[in-house]
């Protein structure tokens, strides 16, 4: 079972595109994959995949109601399937009010049971829902969460439930890679909740060609505190086009989505994008990353062949090397 929270201290759409690409890569490897969108902000995974039509309807049943154990419908009805085969539990505006809703519930329940508020297991609700109540581990091979960026109840619920993190980082104009905030958060959670949180890997992303960026990469390569299986280049145009294609970078390249100016207006269409080797290489890196997470972090059994069916081009077949045969375990 592959379970990971894609966590980025800087938040933003960046972790969202990474989550989408990882999920689609895992699905293409044959892993039945579910993504859970816990980010209520615009530009989230739900809008990327063009699902969750009732996300703004306060009366609609949604994940928060299930986490708080007051559902308005079947849990399975929350799950939608994207056109790339990945299942998703979409975001809902109510996620933004999660903590206040949770506080109400805690007040009510602790009052009823005459228990101390501090004893309420406020970070364990998602865990109970996913694994105890609905046994999603029986139905999926991989579950990824795109969390809200703020360090609060929802994020802690996500980490408590999934236990493993993938951390995309974008090199900023500073010297060292800093995961201090993440480490502090994890350290506190581990002590207070008595769990062990794993870091699958750190993924330097948006890395350019300059010497400085190469130095960053060297820094990542040199550290043995965590794994950095791949570095993702600066592919702004490819990642931006995901919002037009309503899907992964794989979809963008295969359907050749491009945004361009026509008669003074910006339009986005499939069949227009030039096939670029560097973008194919990025897809290969994303696939390799998903493969690392699946095999190295979780010892799962997945395909290591990526088939790309690019519109109006010959199909491409990318076969990943079997790491275990070619190098010693790190």
């Amino acid at each position: 079972m592959i379970t990971a929270v894609v966590y980025s201290e800087s938040g933003g759409t960046f972790k969202t595109t990474m989550t989408a690409n990882l999920a689609v890569a895992l699905e293409r490897m044959g892993a039945r994959t579910l993504v859970i969108d816990l980010d209520p902000q615009e530009g989230n995974l739900t809008s990327l995949f063009d699902v969750g039509t009732s996300r703004s309807d306060p009366d609609a049943d949604n994940l928060v109601k299930h986490i708080l154990d007051m559902p308005d419908g079947e849990f399975d009805d929350l799950i939608e399937t994207t056109n790339e085969g990945v299942d998703i539990i979409p975001s809902h505006d109510m996620l933004g009010d999660f903590t206040s809703n949770l506080e109400q519930k805690i007040s009510y329940e602790t009052g009823m049971k005459n228990m101390n508020r501090d004893e309420y297991p406020r970070f364990e609700l998602l865990y109970d829902l996913l694994w105890n109540e609905h046994e999603l581990n029986q139905r999926y091979d991989a579950i990824l969460v795109d969390p809200n960026a703020r360090a609060e109840d929802l994020l802690y619920n996500a980490i408590y439930a999934l236990r493993t993190l993938i951390a995309p980082v974008k090199p900023a104009g500073k010297g060292n890679l800093s995961l201090d905030g993440l480490e502090e958060l994890v350290g506190n959670m581990e002590t207070q909740l008595d769990i062990e949180i794993g870091l699958s890997c750190v993924v330097p992303s948006g890395v350019g060609q300059t010497n400085a960026h190469q130095q960053y990469q060297q820094q990542f390569d040199d550290t043995d505190a965590f794994s950095t299986p791949v570095t993702i280049g600066n592919r702004e145009s490819l990642m931006d086009a995901m919002w037009e294609a309503r899907g992964s970078a794989f979809k963008v390249v295969e359907e050749r989505w491009k945004t361009f100016k026509r008669d003074g207006e910006m339009v986005s269409e499939p069949g227009q994008r030039r096939l670029r080797d560097r973008e194919i290489e990025t897809l290969e890196k994303l696939f390799e990353l998903a493969h690392f997470v699946a095999t190295e972090t979780f010892d799962a059994d997945v395909d290591s062949v990526l088939e790309l069916e690019v519109q109006d081009h010959d199909n491409r077949r990318i076969e990943l090397m079997d790491k275990e045969q070619t190098e010693a375990t790190p």
Binding site: M1, T3, W131, N137, Q138, A161, L162, R163, T164, L165, L179, E183, E184, V186, G187, E190, I195, E196, I197, G198, L199, S200, T223, A225, F226, S227, E296, T297, F298, D299, A300
Partner: peptide
């Protein structure tokens, strides 16, 4: 980086003996 275990956390279903 002392708090992390490199790899997966301790979520464990024990299913399929893997």
């Amino acid at each position: 980086m002392n708090n992390f275990k490199s790899g997966s956390g301790n979520l464990d279903f024990g299913a399929e003996g893997d």
